[in-house]
């Protein structure tokens, strides 16, 4: 599992309920093709209340007035679980891509008057303000056939036995919440507005992790040749430049570079096989 956000080391005791202000500088955009602008808001937080970035966005929504007193619209953002398991609230906070729900104000802006900068992810088309459209990530899961081809939904007996070690290995890949942090940080992954080009553009680390997940499962590996076809085709694993940014930003600490190495090897062998089969 993930390691917790480091607790602020200042164990200096503080009074409960001390109120302070933080500023939010937010990159806003009213919709695709519209100009971007920055707006700054002042938000009151109470030390120790556990306020995160999203709680502050809610406060802004309830009182959409900038720090200079200008009236504006509530900021638009995406959220779901509020506990870092759904991936919805991913954005750039102070220049680093992460989930906003697990970003506590007392940690990221510990002092009175500190500023937090919020920007939408850059690698996906903007919908509005902090909300981007990541449907490409879900489409990519089709490209790599990220599923187990079971016979059907009626019971036919248990699945294959699995050692605890293998379960642990698969489990960690299976916690990928399609958040896109790894893609946002990857120098090889670019925004592609033309959906018809998605299938030949670089798949990105999370999809390679899914290939590894399913190729390790006794039933799902039946589709391994097809997954490896995708991995050897244009936009496949060989386009990874090994910058290792992905693994540094993955909130679930998924060993993406291990997956890239393993899938890379499998793809090479697969390519040679295909070559000799003349396919």
């Amino acid at each position: 599992m993930t390691s917790p956000t480091p607790v602020s080391q200042d164990s200096a005791k503080h009074e409960l309920g001390a109120e302070r202000s933080v500023y939010f500088r937010i990159k806003r955009c009213d919709g695709p093709g519209k100009a971007t602008r920055w707006e700054r808001f002042k938000v009151k937080v109470t030390r120790g209340e556990g306020a995160n970035v999203l709680a502050c966005l809610e406060r802004i929504a309830a009182n959409p007035v900038t720090a200079d007193g200008a009236k504006t619209t509530p900021v638009v953002w995406d959220a779901g679980c509020l506990e870092e398991v759904c991936g919805a609230c991913t954005m750039n906070v102070n220049g680093k891509v992460r989930q906003a729900c697990s970003c506590l104000i007392d940690t990221c802006a510990p002092n009175d008057g500190d500023e937090v900068v919020l920007e939408p992810m850059q690698k996906f088309p903007i919908v509005r303000d902090l909300w981007v459209d990541r449907s490409r990530m879900f489409e990519t899961l089709k490209r790599v056939k990220a599923w187990t081809p079971i016979d059907g939904l009626y019971a036919t007996g248990p699945g294959p036995k699995e050692t605890p070690e293998r379960q642990q290995e698969r489990y960690i890949y299976s916690t990928c919440m399609t958040c896109g942090c790894c893609l946002e940080a990857c120098p090889q992954f670019q925004q592609e507005p033309d959906a018809s080009k998605w299938d030949t553009s670089f798949v990105g680390a999370n999809a390679i992790g899914q290939v590894q997940l399913f190729n390790e499962h006794p039933t799902a590996k039946e589709l391994a040749p097809e997954r490896l076809d995708a991995m050897t085709a244009a936009g496949g694993v060989s386009e990874c430049g090994n910058a290792q940014n992905c693994v540094k930003v993955c909130p679930k600490e998924i060993p993406l570079t291990d997956a890239i190495a393993a899938v890379g090897r499998a793809a090479t062998i697969h390519g040679i096989k295909r070559f000799f089969q003349g396919k």
Partner: peptide
């Protein structure tokens, strides 16, 4: 029990015992 079997076949990484059972 049938539903657990089905989910197991879908590849849900259920925690395992030493011998590899759920």
């Amino acid at each position: 029990p049938k539903i657990i079997d089905l989910l197991d076949r879908m590849g849900v990484p259920f925690n395992r015992t030493f011998e590899g059972y759920r």
